[in-house]
Design a protein around this nucleic acid. Sequence first.
DNA 1: ATCATTATTATGTATATACATATTATGTCA
DNA 2: TGACATAATATGTATATACATAATAATGAT
Lengths: 233, 233
Amino acid sequence: MTAAARKSFHAIKAEMARRIAERVWAPGGLIPNEEVLAIEFGCARATVNRALQELARGGVLVRKRKAGTRVALHPMREARFVIPIVRQEIENKGGIYQFRLLSNQVERAPQTVYERLGLAKSKEMLHVRSLHLSDSKPYQYEDRWVNLDAVPSIRHETFDSISPNEWLVTHSPFSQAEIVFHAGLADREEAAILDVGEKDSVFIIERLTYLPQKPITYVRMIHPGSHRMVTQL
Amino acid sequence: MTAAARKSFHAIKAEMARRIAERVWAPGGLIPNEEVLAIEFGCARATVNRALQELARGGVLVRKRKAGTRVALHPMREARFVIPIVRQEIENKGGIYQFRLLSNQVERAPQTVYERLGLAKSKEMLHVRSLHLSDSKPYQYEDRWVNLDAVPSIRHETFDSISPNEWLVTHSPFSQAEIVFHAGLADREEAAILDVGEKDSVFIIERLTYLPQKPITYVRMIHPGSHRMVTQL
DNA sequence: ATCATTATTATGTATATACATATTATGTCA
DNA sequence: TGACATAATATGTATATACATAATAATGAT
């Protein structure tokens, strides 16, 4: 290890991660405080602090003022998924992206949609259904409801060259979102659209986005059962 | 906003997040550099830098040396899931946790397991199957294969009071992991164990953990189709 | 014009210092 | 002993400064 490397917070973080992984620092155990570590690594306390904070954010350390820093006993490791827009996701995997608009109309939504968005039941919403394909094979069926009060300009968009997904990303801000993942069975319609058997398994992602006090959209994105969501820790 | 609040990197981060969300800073647009922002917010450049770095990690900003900082055009927002051990997950939801050991023996694993772990096909592995219950209802079926070379001491563990999951967490270090989520259909055995119908949908989490050059364990965790994995952005 | 070299610039990191804050440990009084 | 105020301590954050690094822009030679 060079002198420079030894002093960088990356290197210090890696070294501390090693000590945790190899049980040099035992689970639940108190580790030396920042000042001591700074002396050991020959760097400033701020440098050690940064490394420690990043490890704590990753869930392998638990820090408390005055009490000190401990190795997490039950590591609630956080898994981070990058959620790109679907076109990018397909292209990243080397697929050729295509998009097909299935329907696009203003209508009343099902009860469940109003409930999930916390909207008055009376209002009409924009309902856009589209299919995203990878190498001409169905990849994701997108069933979206948009609150017209939040994004009035979307009403007259045709979506012939851009998917509602990308339109919203570039035209509508949002500050908060909730994402739900679960498994389900394809109903007759979904099976036909995704070209899978009825009652085959499907991977469903639901997403709610909203500004404070203003729900924007509810999307249900349905993947064939062969879909895999992968992450590394 | 108080003077103190205005100078904290939290407040600065929040204010900048607001500008991004409300399109004060347009998608794809260049934002002022750190020095300018530091003057605007009346703080040191390091403080602005911290706020900007956190937003960049969140995916809403893209930073490049010399080129400056832009609002992400296609926000690859990262979703962060905290993955606690299953007992904690159940207890956090207010359920009463129980655990049932289904089987525990040393045997040859299926081809697929050796492949996933990159292990020599000849070796015997520890195979532990267990069921995690929430309020006496099946919550997760855990089907685990452990590389005995990596964790020899597990061979004689009985798992009568602790689940293999928790045993490994407290006894075996790991440095890397791969997690895969997908949907599937319950086969006859899984259906019986989880108390769902055969060919009902199930939510499957697969997890590989390993130390550098040393695979440790492969687990397949199967939830009933009603399972939901939720996160907020 | 093309390519390689050099300068410029914005971000990235390290440091010493100072003070804030949360939490624990200690001490005092009743 | 118990309640409560007080001290001690580890982490959290802000700052000025300095230099490193990556990427672009400008320059010059061919």
